[in-house]
Design a protein around this nucleic acid. Structure first.
Length: 293
DNA sequence: GGCCAGGTAATGA
DNA sequence: TCATTACCTGGC
């Protein structure tokens, strides 16, 4: 159903980007965010409290938004999609060997989104020991049950206050399992301003990591996802089971090292944009694995 | 019908 | 510090 928003807004807006590679599909479906849906040639998602509908248009991104004006959403989406980010410079800096070069070549243009900190905390608390279909369902159910309705059939993430007052049992009822307690505990911390997530954008990597680790249910992996996808920490390097396997296969062999040690090794090896290397290794390993099943 | 998921916290050595 | 294990639930 293309033109989903056409009853509400006829105008659309186009954001151009300067001939840098941009792979919209793999950006939206590489496990950074779980709220985008492919509808025909277009992508429908919820960002900044709006239902947004986007499509690639040559070297530009065409979109419509509801309820806010496109002119307000334009700059926000330009930032969200990192359209002005010099991705080629990053490729140069992380191209340390053929493994990573092949991964980059395969998914050239896949970008790391600059997401809302709170939403990213919630997403990756839901993601632990789970899988993409289930995470997607959990997140959507949570938004429908506890988040405010926008219209066009979509809801916002619950705010920290909404999630805290929902309570652990209600979250278990919609299938979050043991993650329910982590979500409620963390929501309370944020609602009570025991942690200022957005301020962590200007903190150092080490300080922001230490702050996030104080949240119940946030360990090294989840914290690094939040740092990379929402808190402007390009060297963040989340080590999950996929990354672990690939690092062992490509670089470290089977010798046993702790996950944190692997993370630090990779940050040292790939440098200040290690997070981009992580995203390409993760995505290619997942696609490869799917093919072999 | 099991096994294992984009982990973490709580144990016990 | 390091290795184990319980924890919810649902894909596959």
């Amino acid at each position: 159903m293309p033109g989903l928003l056409s009853n509400h807004k006829k105008a659309s807006m186009r954001l151009s980007f300067k001939r840098q590679p941009f792979d919209l599909h793999n950006t939206l479906f590489s496990g950074q965010n779980f709220r985008w849906r492919k509808i025909g040639e277009r992508y429908n998602g919820v960002v900044f409290g709006n239902v947004v509908d986007v499509q690639l248009d040559g070297d530009g991104l065409e979109f419509t938004s509801y309820p806010d004006l496109d002119s307000i959403m334009g700059p926000l989406l330009r930032d969200y999609f990192s359209l002005d980010f010099d991705i080629d410079a990053v490729y140069d800096s992380i191209s340390k060997d053929n493994h990573i070069r092949v991964a980059i070549e395969r998914y050239r243009g896949m970008r790391i989104l600059r997401q809302d900190p709170w939403e990213t905390v919630v997403s990756f608390l839901c993601a632990q020991a789970s899988n993409v279909p289930r995470i997607t369902k959990n997140v959507e159910d949570m938004c429908e049950s506890f988040g405010s309705e926008i219209g066009l059939g979509r809801h916002n993430y619950p705010t920290p206050e909404q999630l805290a007052s929902a309570g652990e049992n209600a979250l278990r009822e919609i299938g979050l399992g043991y993650r329910a307690k982590f979500l409620v505990d963390t929501a309370r911390c944020v609602a009570d301003s025991e942690i200022q997530l957005t301020q962590l954008r200007t903190a150092s990597y080490d300080d922001a990591l230490a702050s996030l680790l104080m949240l119940n249910g946030v360990g090294d992996k989840v914290a690094n996802c939040i740092l990379l996808f929402a808190l402007d920490k390009p060297s963040a390097f989340p080590v999950d089971t996929w990354i672990q396997k690939m690092l062992q296969q490509w670089y470290l062999g089977q010798k046993k090292t702790g996950l944190k040690q692997m993370r630090m090794w990779a940050q040292d090896y790939f440098g200040q944009h290690a997070g981009y290397a992580n995203q390409y290794i993760f995505h290619s390993s997942r696609i490869e694995n799917k093919r072999s099943i």
